[in-house]
Nucleic acid binder design. Structure first.
Lengths: 143, 143
DNA sequence: GCAAAAACATACTTATTTACTAGGTATTAA
DNA sequence: TTAATACCTAGTAAATAAGTATGTTTTTGC
Protein backbone atom coordinates (compact mmCIF):
# COMPACT_ATOMS: atom_id res chain seq x y z
CA UNK A 1 0.00 0.00 0.00
CA UNK A 2 2.77 2.45 -0.86
CA UNK A 3 2.95 5.04 -3.60
CA UNK A 4 6.06 4.27 -5.67
CA UNK A 5 8.74 6.71 -6.75
CA UNK A 6 6.93 7.00 -10.07
CA UNK A 7 3.99 8.76 -8.48
CA UNK A 8 6.02 10.67 -5.94
CA UNK A 9 8.61 11.95 -8.40
CA UNK A 10 5.98 12.82 -11.00
CA UNK A 11 4.10 14.86 -8.44
CA UNK A 12 7.24 16.70 -7.37
CA UNK A 13 8.11 17.33 -11.00
CA UNK A 14 4.74 18.86 -11.82
CA UNK A 15 4.85 20.83 -8.59
CA UNK A 16 8.22 22.19 -9.68
CA UNK A 17 6.74 23.19 -13.03
CA UNK A 18 3.84 24.85 -11.23
CA UNK A 19 6.20 26.83 -9.04
CA UNK A 20 8.11 28.03 -12.10
CA UNK A 21 5.19 28.40 -14.45
CA UNK A 22 6.19 31.95 -15.40
CA UNK A 23 9.70 30.96 -16.46
CA UNK A 24 8.84 29.46 -19.86
CA UNK A 25 9.94 25.94 -20.72
CA UNK A 26 11.84 24.21 -17.93
CA UNK A 27 14.29 21.44 -18.83
CA UNK A 28 14.33 18.08 -17.11
CA UNK A 29 17.97 18.71 -16.34
CA UNK A 30 16.98 21.67 -14.21
CA UNK A 31 14.17 19.80 -12.45
CA UNK A 32 16.31 16.73 -11.90
CA UNK A 33 18.96 18.88 -10.27
CA UNK A 34 16.54 20.86 -8.15
CA UNK A 35 14.59 17.78 -7.02
CA UNK A 36 17.62 15.51 -6.74
CA UNK A 37 16.14 12.89 -9.06
CA UNK A 38 17.89 11.00 -11.87
CA UNK A 39 17.25 12.86 -15.12
CA UNK A 40 17.13 9.65 -17.17
CA UNK A 41 14.53 8.23 -14.81
CA UNK A 42 12.55 11.45 -14.94
CA UNK A 43 12.38 11.19 -18.73
CA UNK A 44 10.50 7.92 -18.38
CA UNK A 45 8.11 9.29 -15.80
CA UNK A 46 7.39 12.35 -17.91
CA UNK A 47 6.59 10.13 -20.89
CA UNK A 48 3.85 8.54 -18.76
CA UNK A 49 2.40 11.98 -18.15
CA UNK A 50 2.62 12.99 -21.80
CA UNK A 51 -0.10 10.49 -22.60
CA UNK A 52 -2.57 13.03 -21.25
CA UNK A 53 -2.75 16.72 -22.03
CA UNK A 54 -1.29 17.85 -18.75
CA UNK A 55 2.09 18.86 -20.21
CA UNK A 56 3.38 20.96 -23.08
CA UNK A 57 6.85 20.06 -24.39
CA UNK A 58 9.38 21.87 -26.57
CA UNK A 59 12.27 19.94 -28.03
CA UNK A 60 15.64 21.32 -28.98
CA UNK A 61 17.92 23.85 -27.37
CA UNK A 62 16.21 25.96 -24.72
CA UNK A 63 13.46 23.37 -24.81
CA UNK A 64 11.71 21.78 -21.87
CA UNK A 65 8.30 21.36 -20.34
CA UNK A 66 5.55 23.52 -18.99
CA UNK A 67 2.14 22.80 -17.53
CA UNK A 68 -0.62 22.81 -20.13
CA UNK A 69 -3.17 23.86 -17.50
CA UNK A 70 -3.30 26.08 -14.48
CA UNK A 71 -1.99 24.41 -11.29
CA UNK A 72 -5.49 24.81 -9.86
CA UNK A 73 -6.78 22.58 -12.67
CA UNK A 74 -4.31 19.72 -12.09
CA UNK A 75 -5.48 17.24 -9.49
CA UNK A 76 -3.18 14.84 -7.69
CA UNK A 77 -5.62 12.06 -8.53
CA UNK A 78 -5.11 12.62 -12.24
CA UNK A 79 -1.33 12.65 -11.89
CA UNK A 80 -1.19 9.50 -9.79
CA UNK A 81 -3.54 7.58 -12.05
CA UNK A 82 -1.19 8.29 -14.96
CA UNK A 83 1.91 7.11 -13.12
CA UNK A 84 0.68 4.57 -10.58
CA UNK A 85 -2.13 3.21 -12.68
CA UNK A 86 -5.63 2.68 -11.35
CA UNK A 87 -5.80 3.74 -7.72
CA UNK A 88 -8.14 0.94 -6.71
CA UNK A 89 -6.67 -1.05 -3.79
CA UNK A 90 -7.17 -4.47 -5.40
CA UNK A 91 -6.68 -5.53 -9.01
CA UNK A 92 -10.10 -7.18 -9.09
CA UNK A 93 -11.45 -3.64 -9.37
CA UNK A 94 -9.04 -2.45 -12.08
CA UNK A 95 -10.95 -3.77 -15.06
CA UNK A 96 -12.92 -6.77 -16.31
CA UNK A 97 -9.78 -8.65 -17.29
CA UNK A 98 -8.61 -8.88 -13.70
CA UNK A 99 -11.92 -9.89 -12.18
CA UNK A 100 -11.54 -13.03 -10.16
CA UNK A 101 -14.06 -15.84 -10.20
CA UNK A 102 -14.92 -15.15 -6.57
CA UNK A 103 -16.29 -11.71 -7.53
CA UNK A 104 -19.98 -12.57 -7.48
CA UNK A 105 -20.01 -13.84 -3.93
CA UNK A 106 -16.93 -12.11 -2.49
CA UNK A 107 -17.83 -10.38 0.77
CA UNK A 108 -14.73 -8.19 0.79
CA UNK A 109 -15.29 -6.58 -2.60
CA UNK A 110 -17.53 -3.83 -1.27
CA UNK A 111 -14.92 -2.96 1.34
CA UNK A 112 -12.28 -2.50 -1.35
CA UNK A 113 -14.70 -0.53 -3.49
CA UNK A 114 -15.37 1.78 -0.56
CA UNK A 115 -11.67 2.20 0.16
CA UNK A 116 -10.98 2.97 -3.50
CA UNK A 117 -13.70 5.59 -3.47
CA UNK A 118 -12.27 7.26 -0.37
CA UNK A 119 -8.77 7.34 -1.89
CA UNK A 120 -9.90 8.67 -5.27
CA UNK A 121 -12.19 11.25 -3.70
CA UNK A 122 -9.41 12.59 -1.53
CA UNK A 123 -6.83 12.76 -4.30
CA UNK A 124 -9.22 14.24 -6.85
CA UNK A 125 -9.89 17.13 -4.51
CA UNK A 126 -6.31 18.27 -4.05
CA UNK A 127 -4.72 20.34 -6.83
CA UNK A 128 -1.14 21.41 -7.41
CA UNK A 129 -2.20 24.92 -6.40
CA UNK A 130 -3.56 23.60 -3.10
CA UNK A 131 -0.21 22.02 -2.36
CA UNK A 132 1.68 25.18 -3.23
CA UNK A 133 -0.63 27.15 -0.97
CA UNK A 134 -0.93 24.44 1.71
CA UNK A 135 -4.50 25.51 2.20
CA UNK A 136 -7.90 23.92 2.71
CA UNK A 137 -9.66 22.59 -0.36
CA UNK A 138 -13.31 21.63 -0.30
CA UNK A 139 -14.08 18.89 2.18
CA UNK A 140 -10.54 17.63 2.16
CA UNK A 141 -7.46 19.29 3.49
CA UNK A 142 -3.78 19.54 3.10
CA UNK A 143 -1.86 19.70 6.42
CA UNK B 1 -1.01 1.22 -4.20
CA UNK B 2 -2.38 -2.31 -4.01
CA UNK B 3 -3.18 -4.42 -0.98
CA UNK B 4 -1.14 -7.61 -1.25
CA UNK B 5 -2.39 -11.17 -0.85
CA UNK B 6 -1.13 -11.02 2.72
CA UNK B 7 -3.75 -8.49 3.72
CA UNK B 8 -6.47 -9.87 1.47
CA UNK B 9 -6.04 -13.49 2.54
CA UNK B 10 -5.72 -12.55 6.23
CA UNK B 11 -8.97 -10.62 6.02
CA UNK B 12 -10.77 -13.52 4.33
CA UNK B 13 -9.37 -15.91 6.94
CA UNK B 14 -10.62 -13.85 9.87
CA UNK B 15 -13.93 -13.37 8.10
CA UNK B 16 -14.18 -17.13 7.75
CA UNK B 17 -13.49 -17.52 11.48
CA UNK B 18 -16.13 -14.90 12.22
CA UNK B 19 -18.70 -16.74 10.13
CA UNK B 20 -17.96 -19.97 11.97
CA UNK B 21 -17.38 -18.52 15.40
CA UNK B 22 -19.82 -20.95 17.04
CA UNK B 23 -18.08 -24.05 15.69
CA UNK B 24 -15.15 -24.11 18.13
CA UNK B 25 -11.59 -24.19 16.85
CA UNK B 26 -11.31 -24.14 13.07
CA UNK B 27 -8.24 -25.65 11.43
CA UNK B 28 -6.24 -23.88 8.76
CA UNK B 29 -6.77 -26.91 6.56
CA UNK B 30 -10.47 -26.24 6.62
CA UNK B 31 -10.09 -22.51 5.95
CA UNK B 32 -7.50 -23.07 3.23
CA UNK B 33 -9.88 -25.46 1.50
CA UNK B 34 -12.92 -23.21 1.85
CA UNK B 35 -11.08 -20.06 0.77
CA UNK B 36 -8.94 -21.77 -1.86
CA UNK B 37 -5.68 -20.49 -0.39
CA UNK B 38 -2.44 -22.46 0.15
CA UNK B 39 -2.44 -23.80 3.70
CA UNK B 40 1.33 -23.40 4.03
CA UNK B 41 1.05 -19.78 2.99
CA UNK B 42 -1.84 -19.24 5.38
CA UNK B 43 0.28 -20.48 8.26
CA UNK B 44 2.69 -17.64 7.67
CA UNK B 45 -0.05 -15.05 7.46
CA UNK B 46 -1.67 -16.30 10.64
CA UNK B 47 1.67 -16.03 12.44
CA UNK B 48 1.63 -12.30 11.61
CA UNK B 49 -1.78 -12.00 13.22
CA UNK B 50 -0.78 -13.99 16.30
CA UNK B 51 1.48 -11.12 17.31
CA UNK B 52 -1.63 -9.34 18.52
CA UNK B 53 -4.41 -10.73 20.68
CA UNK B 54 -6.89 -11.07 17.86
CA UNK B 55 -6.64 -14.87 17.66
CA UNK B 56 -6.81 -17.81 20.04
CA UNK B 57 -5.01 -20.99 18.93
CA UNK B 58 -5.15 -24.60 20.01
CA UNK B 59 -2.45 -27.01 18.92
CA UNK B 60 -2.77 -30.71 18.49
CA UNK B 61 -5.49 -32.89 17.07
CA UNK B 62 -8.85 -31.14 16.77
CA UNK B 63 -6.94 -27.90 17.22
CA UNK B 64 -7.25 -24.75 15.21
CA UNK B 65 -8.03 -21.09 15.58
CA UNK B 66 -10.87 -18.94 16.78
CA UNK B 67 -11.35 -15.21 17.11
CA UNK B 68 -10.35 -13.87 20.52
CA UNK B 69 -12.86 -11.00 20.20
CA UNK B 70 -16.31 -10.47 18.82
CA UNK B 71 -16.35 -9.77 15.04
CA UNK B 72 -17.80 -6.36 15.89
CA UNK B 73 -14.61 -5.58 17.81
CA UNK B 74 -12.19 -6.51 14.99
CA UNK B 75 -11.52 -3.65 12.61
CA UNK B 76 -10.12 -4.10 9.12
CA UNK B 77 -7.57 -1.39 9.91
CA UNK B 78 -6.13 -3.48 12.72
CA UNK B 79 -5.93 -6.58 10.55
CA UNK B 80 -4.29 -4.82 7.62
CA UNK B 81 -1.75 -3.04 9.79
CA UNK B 82 -0.63 -6.44 11.13
CA UNK B 83 -0.24 -7.96 7.68
CA UNK B 84 0.53 -5.06 5.34
CA UNK B 85 2.47 -3.01 7.86
CA UNK B 86 1.87 0.67 8.39
CA UNK B 87 -0.91 1.87 6.10
CA UNK B 88 0.74 5.23 5.41
CA UNK B 89 1.11 5.78 1.65
CA UNK B 90 4.81 6.75 1.79
CA UNK B 91 7.59 5.25 3.89
CA UNK B 92 8.68 8.72 5.06
CA UNK B 93 5.65 8.56 7.34
CA UNK B 94 6.26 5.03 8.66
CA UNK B 95 8.69 5.92 11.41
CA UNK B 96 11.69 8.13 12.21
CA UNK B 97 14.12 5.70 10.62
CA UNK B 98 12.62 6.19 7.18
CA UNK B 99 12.35 9.96 7.31
CA UNK B 100 14.06 11.50 4.31
CA UNK B 101 16.21 14.58 4.52
CA UNK B 102 13.68 16.52 2.47
CA UNK B 103 11.08 16.14 5.24
CA UNK B 104 11.42 19.60 6.74
CA UNK B 105 10.71 21.47 3.52
CA UNK B 106 8.81 18.80 1.54
CA UNK B 107 5.59 20.27 0.17
CA UNK B 108 4.04 16.88 -0.57
CA UNK B 109 4.33 15.49 2.94
CA UNK B 110 1.06 16.99 4.13
CA UNK B 111 -0.75 15.49 1.16
CA UNK B 112 0.51 12.04 2.04
CA UNK B 113 -0.34 12.59 5.69
CA UNK B 114 -3.87 13.53 4.69
CA UNK B 115 -4.20 10.51 2.43
CA UNK B 116 -2.93 8.23 5.19
CA UNK B 117 -5.48 9.67 7.57
CA UNK B 118 -8.32 9.10 5.13
CA UNK B 119 -7.25 5.49 4.54
CA UNK B 120 -6.81 4.68 8.22
CA UNK B 121 -10.05 6.38 9.20
CA UNK B 122 -12.00 4.40 6.66
CA UNK B 123 -10.47 1.05 7.54
CA UNK B 124 -10.69 1.59 11.29
CA UNK B 125 -14.42 2.11 10.96
CA UNK B 126 -15.25 -1.17 9.25
CA UNK B 127 -15.43 -4.31 11.41
CA UNK B 128 -15.68 -7.96 10.46
CA UNK B 129 -19.30 -7.85 11.60
CA UNK B 130 -20.01 -4.95 9.22
CA UNK B 131 -18.68 -7.00 6.34
CA UNK B 132 -20.72 -10.03 7.31
CA UNK B 133 -23.80 -7.83 7.53
CA UNK B 134 -22.87 -5.64 4.54
CA UNK B 135 -24.40 -2.73 6.39
CA UNK B 136 -23.66 0.90 7.10
CA UNK B 137 -21.16 1.64 9.86
CA UNK B 138 -20.78 5.12 11.26
CA UNK B 139 -19.78 7.67 8.64
CA UNK B 140 -18.30 5.05 6.38
CA UNK B 141 -20.07 2.36 4.48
CA UNK B 142 -19.70 -1.02 3.00
CA UNK B 143 -21.35 -1.44 -0.41
C1' DG C 1 1.28 -44.87 25.39
C1' DC C 2 1.01 -44.19 20.60
C1' DA C 3 -0.54 -42.43 16.23
C1' DA C 4 -2.69 -38.82 13.81
C1' DA C 5 -3.61 -34.13 13.23
C1' DA C 6 -2.94 -29.90 14.22
C1' DA C 7 -0.03 -25.47 15.24
C1' DC C 8 4.47 -23.46 14.92
C1' DA C 9 9.11 -22.47 12.78
C1' DT C 10 12.78 -21.72 9.33
C1' DA C 11 14.78 -21.84 5.04
C1' DC C 12 14.41 -21.92 0.20
C1' DT C 13 12.53 -20.63 -4.56
C1' DT C 14 10.50 -18.41 -8.54
C1' DA C 15 8.43 -14.60 -10.78
C1' DT C 16 7.47 -9.92 -10.85
C1' DT C 17 8.21 -5.25 -9.94
C1' DT C 18 10.98 -1.27 -8.83
C1' DA C 19 14.20 1.95 -9.73
C1' DC C 20 17.11 2.86 -12.14
C1' DT C 21 21.32 3.03 -16.24
C1' DA C 22 22.98 2.97 -21.11
C1' DG C 23 22.96 4.32 -25.52
C1' DG C 24 20.93 6.00 -29.03
C1' DT C 25 17.71 9.29 -32.52
C1' DA C 26 15.07 13.53 -33.62
C1' DT C 27 14.38 18.38 -33.06
C1' DT C 28 15.20 23.15 -32.30
C1' DA C 29 17.41 27.61 -30.98
C1' DA C 30 21.54 30.39 -30.98
C1' DT D 1 26.21 23.89 -37.68
C1' DT D 2 26.59 22.82 -33.07
C1' DA D 3 24.91 22.25 -28.67
C1' DA D 4 21.17 21.26 -25.90
C1' DT D 5 17.15 19.44 -25.42
C1' DA D 6 13.11 15.94 -25.87
C1' DC D 7 12.12 11.27 -27.07
C1' DC D 8 12.82 6.10 -27.51
C1' DT D 9 14.22 1.19 -26.44
C1' DA D 10 16.60 -2.06 -24.11
C1' DG D 11 19.10 -3.78 -20.25
C1' DT D 12 20.02 -4.59 -15.13
C1' DA D 13 20.52 -5.13 -10.05
C1' DA D 14 17.97 -5.29 -5.97
C1' DA D 15 13.90 -5.88 -3.57
C1' DT D 16 9.43 -7.77 -2.89
C1' DA D 17 5.63 -11.02 -3.50
C1' DA D 18 3.81 -15.29 -3.31
C1' DG D 19 4.43 -19.12 -2.49
C1' DT D 20 7.08 -24.46 -1.30
C1' DA D 21 9.59 -27.61 1.42
C1' DT D 22 10.77 -29.68 5.48
C1' DG D 23 10.79 -30.06 9.62
C1' DT D 24 9.52 -29.78 15.30
C1' DT D 25 6.15 -29.44 19.03
C1' DT D 26 1.71 -30.10 21.06
C1' DT D 27 -2.66 -32.23 21.82
C1' DT D 28 -6.51 -35.53 21.35
C1' DG D 29 -8.66 -39.96 20.62
C1' DC D 30 -8.07 -44.81 20.56
Amino acid sequence: MKVSTRGRYALRTLLDLAEHKNNGFISLKEIAHRQNISKLYLEQLVSLLSASNILRANRGKQGGYMLAKEPSQCTVGQILRLTEGNLMPVSCLDDEVNQCERAEFCKTLSLWTGLGKVINDYLDNVTLQDILDQKQSGDNYVI
